[in-house]
């Protein structure tokens, strides 16, 4: 399949809202029709072709060969195909996506993968605040799929997450796993303050020590078999490198948050 290539032209200082850029919205359209797709700039509607040079008819595979850090909503709600951005993306990239794969080689703005339902969102750089989280007023954040961050993550990573998998190679900001309902978050680096505050269920796994809230209680040090399964899936299925010592290692289990339901857990790897 030949990819549709979008080359950013002079992008305005005001962020462009371009939810049109998703495989299923480009597929089946001619090059000209793709260029005519609507985008929003401020309170005005414009055409995609004004800001991107379009090469190739619309297809399930899209490549953006440049930085689009000032473009919002790329891949938002996408359900299939593959979208590769050879640079950074703006806010809401892959938000509410249901399927397919969105690859961001640079950094992502806030709300990347917010309320994701399925598919895979790979961010090679760092993610902004609220990655995989719930929008204000929503009862659930991410409910499926995988969000993989090669750099760091901002605040409220995976807030109100219900299901799915988040992995962060670097460190995460404050309130990671805030109000988590279920699902799994793997933090290879550290995390900020109040990690998993309000957690009801779910697993937050950290390879480095964390500053824990007093509403989490130490349970035991053990080898969780499910974690070997989870980390191997992360490594083998998603290509997210995990050192073997973490896959089969010992973890300190903390139950909580007892300010809430208290059925969740924080697992912290230990070399002991």
């Amino acid at each position: 399949m030949t990819a549709t290539v979008l080359t950013p032209l002079d992008l305005p200082r005001v962020p462009l809202e371009a939810e049109a850029i998703a495989p299923e919205r480009l597929a089946g359209r001619s090059e000209r029709e793709v260029a005519l797709l609507p985008v929003q700039i401020g309170n005005a509607t414009a055409q995609l072709g004004e800001f991107f040079r379009v090469r190739g008819a619309g297809s399930d595979e899209i490549r953006i060969d440049g930085d689009v850090s000032r473009v919002k909503g790329i891949g938002a709600g996408m359900t299939r195909g593959r979208l590769v951005v050879e640079g950074g993306v703006g806010m809401h990239a892959g938000a509410r996506m249901r399927g397919g794969e969105l690859v961001v080689m640079g950094d992502a703005g806030a709300w990347a993968g917010a309320e994701m339902v399925g598919g895979v969102l790979r961010i090679g750089g760092s993610a902004g605040d609220h990655a995989g989280a719930a929008y204000p007023g929503s009862r659930r954040g991410m409910t499926g799929g995988a969000l993989l961050v090669g750099g760091n993550a901002g605040r409220e990573l995976g807030g109100v997450m219900r299901r799915g998998l988040i992995a962060v190679r670097g460190s995460a900001g404050d309130y990671s796993g805030f109000n988590m309902i279920a699902g799994s978050i793997v933090l290879c680096g550290g995390a900020g303050r109040r990690t998993a505050a309000g957690m009801k269920r779910g697993s937050l796994v950290a390879f480095r020590s964390l500053e824990l809230l007093p509403t989490f209680r130490y349970a035991c040090t053990y080898r969780p078999e499910f974690l070997a399964l989870l980390l191997r899936t992360l490594r083998d299925l998603f290509g997210f490198a995990i050192d073997a010592r973490y896959v089969s290692g010992l973890y300190r289990r903390y139950s909580g948050d007892f300010a809430e339901l208290g059925r969740g857990e924080i697992l912290i790897w230990t070399s002991d």
Binding site: R163, L165, S184, R201, S203, P224, F226, L229, L230, T233, L237, R263, E265
Partner: peptide
């Protein structure tokens, strides 16, 4: 506890 990994549910 249950955990869904790669679309398959496991019980702990």
């Amino acid at each position: 506890l249950s955990k869904v990994i790669d679309g398959r549910r496991y019980w702990r």
